[in-house]
Amino acid sequence: MTTAPDTPTPKRGAVSNAVGRYERFTREREPDGWEQAPVEPAPEEDWDALPPLRTHVQRDASRSILARNTSPDIPFDRSINPYRGCEHGCVYCFARPTHAYLGLSPGLDFESRLFEKPDAPALLEAELRRKSYRCAPIAIGTNTDPYQPIERDRRIMRGVLEVLRDYHHPVTIVTKSALVTRDIDILAPMAEQRLVRVALSLTTLDRGLQRVLEPRAATPGARLAAIKALVDAGIPAAVMVAPVIPALTDHEIERILEKAAEAGADAAGWIFLRLPLEIRDLFEEWLRTHKPDRAERVLSLIRQSRDGTYYQSAWGKRMTGEGPIAQMIGNRFRIAARRFGMEPRDLALDTSLFRPPPRKGDQLALL
């Protein structure tokens, strides 16, 4: 990226709103000789006084809700995304490029122009009643966060959980939001039947860094408190140290695992920073805006861990990177996980309880 970044938008992650890769025309800023003296961005402590970039939500008219994958490095083959786009605004989010399919920007559009799927519970129920359906754990939160702020009012994720509970269907949840504790009344009985696991993603314990890196996600303290609340309710909870950003957050690996273990987390995972497609420029722009003193160092270590590039899509490498830096991070994570009792173990959920509940008029089974 050669152009200077835009002025940061208060409480948003991406610095700019560059067009997606499928658009016919792109926009670049060029000095025209009429520019005024540069305007300094407002200090973060004054952000609350600035007008916000409001979130707009549209209806997604999808006719199916289960997304399938056959990737050998992903431990699930089906997932649900109640929303497109994510208001949390995490600048590194690998789901950002999907907004380009909609003719929107993976930048600010991704976190401010959202799409909800209010029919998700009904679509899921129809899918689970198919005679051809074979039960396997459904993953939720692997793309956009099901507990992002608009879920508080829309309650689509809660509707999905109610269907899964009624069908005794196993589910795994990944989120950055403490809102997951709202649904403890559904999750706790499911946990008693080994039908659910929850993971809280924790990138940093530094509140100042988190405020600009993940501006609308729950604070680190709130996520740790959510882990404790889930565990206290009998719901198994893990921590995802993700993404690990070299020279920016990697020094926190051991401390994050320690605090998560104190909160009751019984498992942990990690993912090396991924920068596919438009995310590369968005992340570099963010670095040069918020962390200019270490931007070159961070980018250099990323390239060293991606065979000289910013991203490798090859299975087995995209999640962990390769080379000495990535290997060192992986070793540190494994040693710390062992120290805090979060070593890999069998976390399989029970698929044998799956039963579509009877409907009025259904013929009763003989056995």
Score class of each variant (00 low, 15 high):
E296D: 15
G330W: 03
T320D: 07
L282K: 02
T249F: 05
A237M: 12
I253M: 09
I335R: 11
R303G: 01
W315F: 15
A242K: 04
T249N: 05
R339H: 12
F272V: 11
S300C: 06
L277H: 13
T309N: 14
D346I: 05
R318L: 09
R288I: 00
I325D: 00
P344S: 15
A314M: 13
K291F: 09
R255I: 05
G234A: 10
I302T: 06
L353R: 08
P358A: 13
Q304V: 10
K259P: 04
R355Q: 10
D293V: 03
R355F: 01
D350P: 03
W286K: 06
I256L: 02
A263S: 07
E285L: 08
P356L: 14
H251Y: 01
G323M: 05
V244H: 02
R274N: 05
P344I: 09
Y310S: 04
E252L: 00
D281Q: 15
Y311T: 03
A314D: 15
P356Q: 12
Q327S: 10
Q304A: 15
G330K: 06
P276T: 04
A261R: 06
G264T: 08
A348R: 14
E262A: 14
E284R: 15
D281G: 14
L248V: 07
A261Q: 10
A337P: 06
G330S: 06
L282Q: 04
K317P: 01
V298Q: 01
E343V: 02
S352L: 06
T351S: 12
D293L: 13
N331S: 11
E258M: 04
R334N: 14
G330L: 07
L287P: 03
V239H: 13
G341L: 07
P276L: 02
A263G: 01
M342R: 05
F354R: 09
V241E: 09
M319F: 15
T351N: 13
A238T: 10
G234Y: 08
R359G: 03
P357L: 13
I235Q: 10
R255S: 08
Q312G: 05
T351G: 14
F333C: 02
I271G: 01
S305E: 02
D346G: 09
G234W: 07
K291P: 03
K317D: 04
A233C: 09
P276F: 03
A348H: 08
G316E: 07
F333Y: 01
R294W: 04
E262M: 12
S305V: 07
G269H: 11
I325F: 03
A260Q: 07
A260C: 04
A336E: 10
T309D: 11
D250N: 07
R334G: 05
V244W: 01
R339Y: 10
D250S: 03
A247P: 00
G316I: 11
M240I: 02
R334M: 15
N331L: 15
F340A: 08
V298E: 00
A265K: 08
I325E: 01
L301G: 05
A336I: 15
P292N: 04
E284K: 12
I256M: 00
L275H: 03
E343W: 06
Q312M: 14
A247E: 05
R280L: 09
L301T: 02
Y311F: 13
R294N: 11
D307R: 11
I256S: 02
I279P: 01
W270C: 05
A265Y: 08
D346A: 06
E284L: 12
